[in-house]
Design a protein around this nucleic acid. Sequence first.
DNA 1: TAAAAAATTTAGACTTGTCTAAAAATAAAT
DNA 2: ATTTATTTTTAGACAAGTCTAAATTTTTTA
Lengths: 216, 216
Amino acid sequence: MNTLAEENYLKAIYHLSLNDTNVSTNQIAAAINTKAASVTDMLKKLADKELINYEKYQGVTLTNAGEKIALHIIRKHRLWEYFLVEKLNFKWDEVHEMAEEMEHISSVELIDRLDKFMDYPKHDPHGDPIPDRDGNFKKHELKPIASLNVNESGVISGVRDHSPTFLQYLEKQQLTIGKKITVTDIIEYDNSMILQVENITTHISREVAKNLLIAI
Amino acid sequence: MNTLAEENYLKAIYHLSLNDTNVSTNQIAAAINTKAASVTDMLKKLADKELINYEKYQGVTLTNAGEKIALHIIRKHRLWEYFLVEKLNFKWDEVHEMAEEMEHISSVELIDRLDKFMDYPKHDPHGDPIPDRDGNFKKHELKPIASLNVNESGVISGVRDHSPTFLQYLEKQQLTIGKKITVTDIIEYDNSMILQVENITTHISREVAKNLLIAI
DNA sequence: TAAAAAATTTAGACTTGTCTAAAAATAAAT
DNA sequence: ATTTATTTTTAGACAAGTCTAAATTTTTTA
Ligand SMILES: [Mn+2]
Ligand SMILES: [Mn+2]
Ligand SMILES: [Mn+2]
Ligand SMILES: [Mn+2]
């Protein structure tokens, strides 16, 4: 099949494609923690395998075959994260690095059985959708809490920043997936927000409000 | 830590050490499906890391550090096999190849939690002992059914051949781990054996009798 | 115990994936 | 529309792991 390195490139390109239609060499290099020259080498290999569309200097897009592989890796990543949290009781800020390794386990039958074992979860611990075995998922439309006005509310459904420190902060503030929040005030001076989270009042910075997402 | 290749070499050396104190280059090459020249290269690297004791032309033994790593990989392999059979309902002949990949997942915390999740199993689906987190396990003494005389009996506790075809054959004959068997007759002509397995009578070849193990 | 056979190691080469430094192309700024 | 800055690609090198073919060592056999 594909090497571990190839899989990581395809996954990175997929994620970057969500923000930009054409993904640049430098973007990939930054995402994957390598140098641009290394990326160029790999892009040639992936293009040879017809997993990406690549024109020199013009950036890349995934072909259907490439996207299918990327989605399968993401499916595995998110199912293993769900397993680690729901079955092995890890916290949501602890599972990403382990899933980075587990997503490369190749057996399709294994991942389908794991999916069934957990009763076909639709979202991972961070609120991200889990593709089914055919790569399909309903992409829920989300928006940042920062876009709300006073007295508007929503249900926390995702995060834009997956770093452990951010996730730990949210956990401490009880700002976790599924919680309903209401904006009770916005401080004009710094655009920070006062939230009502169930029966708790919390004050979050603009920065946090931009990275915490609610269902539309 | 150690690379995937290094881990596979250490594991192979460990398994071969159970039969011979000094493990030869050719034995390793056969076990790992490589050429002797490649093995020699790797032995030098492992010796540099002080994971094996290596003297040119004399074969190798594991150091304590090397054995510890090997046992940890074997622990992971067998725990994942147990998981696949007990939680995901795979058959005992289907899990080895998947475990060959999963045994390289690095997190120690993950494997300890998996161990706890399954309530600290002592043996994998093939009857092999699962080392604890310190590498300790009680090596059960086993002997082949072939060593029994007429009217002697024992409990099936392991296999000497782990190939899917052998395991499938055993499954079909109900000759699975935990079953009590009694030798009711031995055919002198070919040394094949008639077994009573609970309320079923089965006829097995000498070859099979040598590879099916019972607790002493 | 000397010759033959088998096992092991060395030498040199190849692939994958990475890097630095330099060249080329594109984009931005005057 | 040039010049300047940024991005991307090429050139050449390196480490890990493997291979074949040849040399060396050990073991076996006569
Ligand atoms: Mn993740
Ligand atoms: Mn996630
Ligand atoms: Mn196995
Ligand atoms: Mn096993």
